[in-house]
């Protein structure tokens, strides 16, 4: 049957959005980070169209999207490709096992920081992120910048003025997301 209903699957939203992709590759040619990706955005869209979540999970390409929106701007089909990248990140962070969770660390900790303090506390966020990644070389690579920021009085303990302000909104959003 041509229009049989598919069982619910994590990529269905992405598939619908990408159904008009004609594989022209304008996105790949426009992407400032494509050279660092293990597959081009064009190929990623194809895998998503085919529902090949396993293949997508094995790739790290979408973690390299920096939300510059150049592909979105140039897509001749007018597809919201940057938004799709974010959606793939969400799907893989939930369904993608350990690697997906590790890649999603920064974003998840960012959100925790916002929920707790109301306004992002940059120094605290970076400390938590580097601790969660558990990589001494990564931590070390940020040391020079940390020192520069400290010298300019830009490293500080978290401000608590807005602490807890966002708790009700986060609770409500969780309730709404659990329902959908």
């Amino acid at each position: 049957m041509l229009h049989e209903t598919r069982p619910a699957e994590p990529l269905s939203g992405v598939r619908d959005t990408l159904s008009a992709c004609m594989q022209c590759g304008t996105c790949s040619a426009s992407c400032p980070n494509a050279a660092f990706m293990d597959m081009t955005p064009r190929k990623l869209w194809r895998l998503a169209q085919l529902g090949m979540l396993d293949e997508i999970e094995r790739s790290e390409a979408f973690w390299l999207c920096s939300s510059c929106y150049t592909c979105t701007l140039r897509c001749p089909r007018g597809l919201p490709l940057t938004q799709v990248m974010a959606e793939i990140k969400r799907v893989v962070a939930v369904h993608g096992g350990r690697t997906g969770r590790r890649h999603g660390n920064f974003y998840r900790l960012f959100l925790n920081n916002v929920e707790k303090y109301g306004r992002v506390q940059e120094s605290t966020l970076m400390t938590c992120y580097l601790a969660a990644m558990g990589s001494p070389s990564l931590a070390l690579s940020f040391a020079p910048v940390g020192l520069k920021l400290a010298a300019k009085g830009k490293m500080h303990p978290p401000h608590s003025a807005m602490k807890g302000t966002l708790k009700p909104l986060f609770a409500k959003v969780r309730e709404m997301e659990a329902r959908s």
């Binding site: 939300s67 959606e87 969400r90 974003y107 960012f110 959100l111």
Partner: peptide, 18 residues
């Protein structure tokens, strides 16, 4: 009483919070 806008870091976690 303004609070964080979510920056570009929330979209990869929650569409609604974005």
């Amino acid at each position: 009483d303004w609070t964080c806008c979510g920056a570009s870091a929330v979209e990869p976690v929650s569409r609604l919070l974005t």
